[in-house]
Amino acid sequence: MTARRQALLLLVPAALTLFVLFVLPQALMFEASLGRRSAYGGIVHEWSFANYARALEPLYLGIFARSVGLAALTTGLCLALAWPVAWWIAFRVPQRHKSALLVLLVLPFWTSFLVRMYAWIVLLRTEGVVNAVGVAFGLPAFDLLYNDLAVLIGQVYGELPFMALPLYASMEKLDRRLLEAAADLGASPLRRLREIALPLTLPGIAAGAVLVFIPSLGAYLAPDLLGGAKGVYVGNLVQSQFAVARDAPFGAALSFVLALLVFVAVAAARRPLAAARGL
């Protein structure tokens, strides 16, 4: 038996599973997106692009823009928080503590996201924990919950580890001698960060950005629970087409526009990722 045949045998079960459970449904979904809603919320299979035309109306385009904005902000904030932490674990922490610290990054994920969102509500509400602490220090109570900031906190909270882990992975592989050389040659810390550390961790940044940006595009729990449902994001919109308006064809069309956005985002990240593999 050749190595190639072995590799094929190993690959086929997983590839087939993914083909049947991901590719086929997408084809069905595309067919549905060309149909229209029946009076009872079923699908009438009469093909047209009407749903796509509707998805491009200003009302829905605005919602898409809002989602892209939230995803971009989430990605940026996650990067700002996760990069220093990953750097700290990679370069400042003794080897024997590293794996424990990495596991601690992911451990909260073993509790339901929903339960953690409700814990945030307890933290942020008017008579909540954060305000109680603030009031004890003589600050006034703020309305922290049910606004865009709360949505952002929830999103960043949910996505942070997905940024931190790939960042750490790319830092682990980084050649320390480059940093030392730069320091020896008298480069300032800022310059070493800008010209050595950031470019060398670009693959991790790109991978993390993809892993954070994409799920954030489809976010709907944080906007509903922490944002008080006062803003609509694509995730909420798609969800409500399937679960409230029972307009599966329009929901499917929106999903495809969303998938298109995702592919654009991934394509944008491809170049730094590919460059990274060359390093």
């Binding site: 993914l18 590719v23 997408q26 994409i214 595009l217 995730g235 798609v238 995702v262 991934v266």
Partner: peptide, 24 residues
């Protein structure tokens, strides 16, 4: 193409996966 197939579950938003699986 194979890489793309394996990237699908990571890059397709959950809500899209969910609704398309119901159709399947």
């Amino acid at each position: 193409a194979i890489e793309a197939l394996f990237a699908l579950p990571i890059v397709v938003p959950e809500i899209v996966i969910a609704s398309s699986m119901v159709l399947l």
